[in-house]
Design a protein around this nucleic acid. Structure first.
Lengths: 215, 215
DNA sequence: TTCAATTTAAAACACTCGTTTAAATTAAAC
DNA sequence: GTTTAATTTAAACGAGTGTTTTAAATTGAA
C-alpha cells in the first residue's frame, strides 16, 4: 500500500507535534518517522534534509497566520486610526485561535514552534522567516510603533524584542506553566487564557514612558 | 607538565564561555577541552559527567550572586518598607554588575548561562537551581509580591514567568541585539545599558492592573 | 499489458557524541 | 630515594545522528 493518506503529510503532522514538544535538535528523524509510521529515508526523499523539513513545518502555519493577521491589523487601523497598543496586540488573538481550525491544537503548536524556532537554530530559521515573511513583520512593527508614538524607534526596537522573549518563552513552556498553575492555584487555563493574560503585560511594558535618567 | 594553573579551573573557564555563547547541548566536551588545552578525559575525571560540569559552571556564579542579591533586597526593604517594584528590580543591578569583578564579562556570561539553563534541559538544571537556591528565589518572589499587593498571587505567578522569559531571552541574545542596535540606530549599549532598559519594561508589565473582563 | 516514473524499503555510511579503560606521568609521603 | 597516590594521556567503546545508496515494490500513463 502506497500513498496512504500522503506520506508527506504524515511526516509533517508527526514532526510538528514532536518539534513543539521537545525542540528541533532534540527530535531525531528516526523518532519522527516511527511516530508517522513511514520509512526513515522518506524524509530526505520528500524534504531533502531535516532543515528543510523544519522550514516546511513552520511554513504550513506561517502561510495561514501571517496574511490573516496582517489583514486583521489593517482592518482595525482602518476602523480606528488611533487604535491603542492593546487593540493592536488583541487583534492577533483571533488569527491565532483560528489555527485551531486548521489542525487540532494548532494555536499551541504554532506558538511553541515559533518559540523553539527563535530559541534554537541561530541562522537558517531566522533567515527563512525574515526573508519569506518580512513584509508582514514590517507591517506589525509599523502598527505598533504608530500606536506608541512617544517611544523612540531605538527604544521600541528593544522593547519589541523584550516582547518577543516574553511570548516565545511563555509559549515554549506553556504546558508546564499551565500544569503548575492548576496545581498551585486551582486555575485551569487553556491557551486562549494565557494569551489574554500576556497581552496587558506586553502593552504596559512596551508603552511605559522612557525614563531619560536611565538612558 | 601537569597542573599548570589548575586543570579544573581551565575547564570551568572554557566551558562557561562556550556554554554562554552556544548553549549546553551544542557545546561538545571535545570543544571545551581543546579550548582549555586539557585532555578530553579530564572532564569526566574532575567532574564525573557533562551534566555535573554544567551544574558546576552555574554554581560558581549562583554562589556569589544569590547571597549578595538577597542581602541587597533585604537592605532596601529595611530602608523603605514601601519600596516600589522598580526599586526591587533595580536592587538587582549592582549584584549583577559585581560579577564583572569575579571574572571578565561575568555579568553577561552569568545572565546568558541562566537563560540557556532555563531554555534547555527540561529537568536537571531546574531541579538543581530550585533545590540549591530555592530559599533565595522565595525571598525574591515574596519581595516582588509585597511590592505589588494589588496583583493576586495566581496572576503574579504568570507575570513573573513572563518576566523570566523576557530576561532570559534578552540575555541569551544580548550580543546579537546589541550589534543590530548599533548598526541600525547607532546605539552602543553595554550589558548595564540593556539591564537598565529592561527594568522599567518589567516593572510596568508586572504591576499593570488586572483587567477583570479578561479573566 | 507494458513500460517508465515515483515511492517505499532495508541497509550501510560517515560522523559526532559522552564515557570508559589502561598505561604513562607527575606530585606527595615516608 | 623509594613507594604510593593523584593526575594526565591516548585510544577505544558503544550508542546515536543525518544522510546516501541500492534494490524492490507500486503507481499511472502509453
Amino acid at each position: 500500500m502506497a500513498n496512504r493518506s500522503d506520506t508527506k503529510t504524515r511526516i509533517l503532522d508527526a514532526a510538528e507535534k514532536l518539534f513543539a514538544e521537545r525542540g528541533f535538535s532534540e527530535t531525531s528523524l528516526r523518532l519522527i518517522t516511527s511516530k508517522a509510521e513511514v520509512n526513515l529515508a522518506s524524509v530526505n526523499y520528500h524534504f531533502g534534509s531535516k532543515k528543510e523539513l523544519i522550514r516546511a513545518v513552520l511554513a504550513r502555519y506561517l502561510d495561514v497566520f501571517m496574511p490573516t493577521a496582517a489583514d486583521a491589523i489593517v482592518a482595525v487601523r482602518n476602523a480606528d486610526a488611533n487604535a491603542s497598543l492593546n487593540d493592536i496586540f488583541s487583534t492577533l488573538v483571533n488569527p491565532l485561535l483560528d489555527l485551531n481550525q486548521v489542525r487540532a491544537d494548532g494555536t499551541t503548536t504554532f506558538l511553541q514552534l515559533l518559540g523553539r524556532g527563535y530559541i534554537e537554530s541561530q541562522g537558517h530559521l531566522r533567515w527563512f522567516i525574515t526573508t519569506h515573511y518580512g513584509k508582514y513583520l514590517s507591517l506589525f512593527v509599523k502598527a505598533v510603533g504608530e500606536s506608541a508614538p512617544h517611544i523612540p524607534p531605538a527604544e521600541m526596537f528593544w522593547r519589541l524584542h523584550f516582547t518577543l522573549g516574553t511570548v516565545v518563552f511563555t509559549m515554549a513552556s506553556a504546558d508546564a506553566l499551565t500544569e503548575i498553575a492548576a496545581a498551585d492555584f486551582g486555575e485551569h487555563n487553556d491557551i486562549e487564557a494565557v494569551i489574554r493574560k500576556v497581552i496587558p503585560y506586553l502593552s504596559a511594558g512596551v508603552s511605559v514612558p522612557v525614563n531619560k535618567d536611565a538612558m
